[in-house]
């Protein structure tokens, strides 16, 4: 027989030794990192110029908590509207009618490109551009007409702006998710006689959501921070609330730390929410992971 025999020359002890050495190494590195972190924390905590006392006294002030609440609902509203808008934009983008997919592209291009700050000011002044909103035939009779400011308040206009901006970003995320669902899934759903709407609701979107959840979590954090731009139109969100306080008492840094602490906490809440949703939508895959076998392709 001319087969080559493979000899394991390494005695069994060597691997064990290597494992022990790498464990000791990991421990040493961890210790160094920990010491550096503790020193940095100490330096921050003992630096009286941070004014930790002021931070503590304003952390749970009514005005700050009210601002936090505004940031909270604004974030959730914009993410929810953006998600719905994004699904619509992504679906239009896939339309076989060229004019429709082109329109969806144009929407995405426009609302992704214009800085949110510019859009906020623009939408805030929407009533100046269109003082009255009317429903009728252009150049013909008007059926209903009302001053813009009585139909949508500047704040509502800005929220619409936020939602459009977010729809453009979410649209791209959803589009990636739609592309990730194999064409066979669409065909299988169609072969069962599902209409396109049912197919999306029951078969495709649940799979899309699972795939895009991490990216949407990221996006939600971005939105949370972007809502702080709304301070330019004097909406008392978290950031503007602390700005109002420090513009009076000049404790700029401590109050910005107050806002930072709440933004950090909010991010943890968003992260937990994402984790819960990922668990919910990933159930089928998670349960299955260890047993998957059998398909050769």
């Amino acid at each position: 027989m001319s087969t080559v025999e493979i000899v394991h020359e390494r005695p069994p002890g060597v691997r064990l030794l290597a494992a022990r050495r790498s464990a000791r190494h990991n421990l040493a590195v961890s210790a160094v990192v920990l010491v550096i972190a503790v020193l940095a924390l100490f330096s921050i905590a003992r630096n009286h110029r941070f004014q930790w006392g002021v931070v503590g006294s304003y952390l749970t002030t009514g005005a700050v908590l009210k601002g936090l609440l505004t940031t909270f609902w604004l974030t959730f509203l914009v993410v929810a509207l953006g998600l719905v808008g994004g699904i619509v934009v992504a679906l239009l983008r896939r339309s076989r009618v060229p004019a429709i997919s082109w329109l969806a592209w144009l929407f995405t291009w426009f609302f992704r490109s214009v800085p949110m700050l510019v859009q906020i000011i623009f939408w805030f002044n929407f009533a100046a551009l269109y003082p009255t909103l009317s429903f009728g035939i252009p150049g013909g009779p008007t059926f209903v007409s009302a001053p813009t400011n009585s139909v949508i308040s500047p704040l509502v206009a800005v929220i619409i702006g936020f939602a459009l901006h977010e729809s453009a970003f979410m649209g791209e995320i959803i589009r990636a998710g739609l592309n990730s669902v194999p064409s066979g899934q669409w065909q299988a759903a169609r072969s069962l006689g599902m209409t396109e709407g049912r197919l999306l609701r029951r078969v495709v979107l649940p799979q899309v959501i699972r795939v895009v959840l991490p990216t949407i979590g990221n996006e939600a954090i971005s939105v949370m921070k972007e809502t702080s731009l709304i301070s330019v139109i004097a909406v008392t969100d978290l950031l503007y609330s602390v700005q109002l306080i420090y513009s009076v008492n000049f404790q700029t840094i401590p109050l910005l730390i107050v806002a930072t602490i709440w933004y950090l906490a909010f991010t943890i809440v968003l992260g937990m929410l994402q984790w819960l949703l990922e668990r919910r939508f990933g159930r089928s895959v998670r349960i299955a992971a260890p047993a998957s076998r059998g398909a050769a392709a």
Partner: peptide
């Protein structure tokens, strides 16, 4: 179908 296409969720 060749690749079964059961709905994974």
């Amino acid at each position: 179908f060749q690749h079964f296409e059961l709905f994974p969720h």
